[in-house]
């Protein structure tokens, strides 16, 4: 019983991480779109889009794909 609810609490915390990361990704995507529509400078656009894409990639790789499990293992936590 108590073990059950402990597991459920663990899950909802993990699920919240998912929402937070998704929110960041969504904001970055919209920012990309707005910048692309509004900005005229080619160079600035390339730089800003690259930064946004790398940030999004990093967030997915770290939080969604759990890259750290490669060296820490999953069972460790």
């Amino acid at each position: 019983m108590s073990k059950q609810s402990h597991a459920a609490a663990g899950e909802s915390a993990d699920q919240r991480t998912g929402f937070t990361v998704f929110l960041i990704l969504a904001v970055l995507t919209i920012a990309e779109y707005i910048v692309a529509v509004g900005l005229d400078s080619k160079v600035a656009l390339v730089v800003m889009l690259s930064v946004a894409a790398i940030a999004k990639c990093w967030a997915i790789v770290v939080y969604f794909m759990h890259v750290s499990r490669l060296w820490r293992g999953e069972e460790a936590h």
């Binding site: 663990g10 899950e11 993990d14 699920q15 929402f19 998704f22 969504a26 995507t29 939080y63």
Partner: peptide, 21 residues
């Protein structure tokens, strides 16, 4: 946006399975 959202549901699916849900 759709693909991004599907990444979230995929994450939620995995997390649920990890916790036995």
């Amino acid at each position: 946006s759709l693909l991004l959202l599907s990444s979230l549901t995929a994450y939620r699916a995995e997390t649920a399975f990890v916790h036995g849900n």
